[in-house]
C-alpha cells in the first residue's frame, strides 16, 4: 500500500506557499504600492513587464506552478470522490495533461515576454 499522504502532504505544503505567493501577487495590483492612481493603471504594460520580466518573473512562474499543482490535485481528489476508483487512470491523465498544457503556456508567457 503506497501512502496516500505522500501526495496529499503537498496539498498543504503548496497551500502554505500560496498564502505568501498570492499575497505578493495581489499586492502588486494595489495602486498605492505601485505608485499609480488606479487599479487599471497597475495593468499598464510597463507595470506588467515589471511583474513578469526579470527576477519577479521567476516568482510569478513559481506561483503559476504551485497554484496549478494545488488546484489540479484538489480537483483530482474531488473527481475521484465522485467518479470512484475505476476512473482513476482517466482522472489522473486529464489532470497531468492540464498541468503540462497550462504550465507550458505560463512558462512561455514569462520567458517569451519582450520589453514594451
Amino acid at each position: 500500500m503506497v501512502g496516500y499522504s505522500r501526495i496529499q502532504l503537498w496539498q498543504y505544503i503548496t497551500a502554505i506557499l500560496l498564502i505568501f505567493l498570492l499575497a505578493w501577487h495581489f499586492a502588486s495590483r494595489l495602486p498605492f504600492l505601485r505608485g499609480v492612481d488606479s487599479f487599471a493603471e497597475t495593468l499598464a504594460p510597463d507595470k506588467v513587464y515589471e511583474d513578469l520580466g526579470g527576477a519577479s518573473g521567476v516568482l510569478a512562474l513559481a506561483l503559476a506552478y504551485t497554484a496549478l499543482f494545488h488546484g489540479l490535485n484538489g480537483l483530482r481528489g474531488i473527481l475521484l470522490e465522485w467518479l470512484g476508483p475505476s476512473r482513476k487512470p482517466l482522472v489522473n491523465t486529464v489532470v497531468v495533461i492540464l498541468f503540462l498544457v497550462f504550465a507550458g503556456l505560463a512558462t512561455y508567457g514569462v520567458v517569451g515576454i519582450t520589453k514594451p
Binding site: M1, G3, Y4, S5, Q8, G77, L80, E81, P85
Partner: peptide, 12 residues
C-alpha cells in the same frame, strides 16, 4: 497510521 494513510483514509 498506515491504515489511515490510504486513499480511503483520513486524508479524504
Amino acid at each position: 497510521l498506515e491504515i489511515a494513510d490510504d486513499e480511503n483514509g483520513a486524508l479524504k
